[in-house]
């Protein structure tokens, strides 16, 4: 079967912009992640270029593009904008039909999404205003630990103690980290404690629901310690998609495949079907 027409999903997140390109039959033919920087439109273009690179295909083959994420309305050429909540649910479920909960730990926000057996959204939560429990939180506390962000995961994985950081807010956690360093606690234990505190925030957002959980987002994609902490608190390892960071973009691309071209002339029925300028 020919790859074209192509269907594109772009997840313009606050830290990273992700792109997934699907062939007409729904197989992933390309994907890419770039830093969002300050211009979502440019980042989206760059992510698409990256995703198409090496496929021998080009933008002219794109039949439909759906954008999602914080900067979804800035993505040029997107026929529809759909929230990251619906897209993550869609992407994760396509990888794991049995999934009920999706835990997405991103740069600026953390989401927990629950769907039923039909894939219908049942409940969803986003972290409230504070950064605690997000990638940004990890970044700011890494500075306190004096460890580069890229090294914090490997360090945490060497910990054998059951250390948990207790503060709710980013600033207080920073202070707690300094106190613990001063009291001689090994940095690897503090690092693992940090991931556990994120997992605890996520767990609180889950509202005592049951069912298989998939973990997505940049923090999950890059940190095994995050998965370890999630496994500890949920009592089972979370399902880990092949490209956890691209779950939202994948969901958006799947939705792009369903867009009825005739619908595009219709003025919006909703956010889900909002036609961008």
């Amino acid at each position: 079967m020919s790859a074209v027409p192509l269907y594109v999903g772009i997840d313009a997140g606050s830290s990273a912009t992700k792109c997934v390109v699907l062939a007409a039959d729904g197989t992933i033919v390309g994907h890419g992640v770039v830093s969002s920087g300050f211009d979502y439109a440019e980042a989206a273009d760059a992510a698409l270029t990256l995703a198409l690179g090496g496929t021998g295909l080009d933008r002219g083959d794109v039949a439909c593009c759906v954008s999602t994420g914080y900067g979804r309305k800035n993505v040029r050429g997107a026929q529809r904008h759909v929230t990251e909540i619906s897209c993550h649910a869609r992407g994760a479920r396509a990888w794991y039909p049995e999934v009920r909960g999706i835990v997405d730990i991103g740069g600026q926000d953390t989401k927990v999404i629950w769907i039923d057996a039909r894939g219908e959204l049942v409940d969803y939560r986003m972290n409230s205003k504070c950064a605690a429990g997000t990638g940004t939180f990890l970044e700011s506390v890494a500075v306190r630990l004096g460890v580069p962000l890229s090294a914090i995961d490997a360090l945490a994985m060497t910990s054998t103690a059951h250390s948990v950081l207790n503060s709710y807010c980013t600033v207080f956690t920073g202070t707690e980290v300094i106190e613990r360093i001063k009291s001689g606690e090994p940095r690897q234990d503090i690092s693992m404690g940090l991931f556990r505190s994120i997992a605890a925030r996520v767990f609180e957002m889950c509202a005592a629901r049951d069912g298989p959980i998939a973990a997505t987002g940049g923090v999950v994609a890059h940190c095994r310690a995050m998965l370890r902490a999630l496994e500890e608190i949920f009592g089972a390892p979370p399902l880990l998609p092949p490209w956890p960071q691209q779950a939202g973009a994948y969901g958006a691309a799947l939705l792009a495949r369903e867009v009825d071209p005739h619908d595009l002339d219709e003025r919006p029925r909703s956010a889900q079907s909002e036609v961008s300028a």
Partner: peptide
């Protein structure tokens, strides 16, 4: 109050109602 987050929540709610 976070405007961006609330707007996303509202849009997702409508997506939920549509489904």
């Amino acid at each position: 109050f976070s405007t961006a987050q609330t707007m996303t929540n509202l849009e997702a709610f409508v997506e939920q109602l549509e489904v």
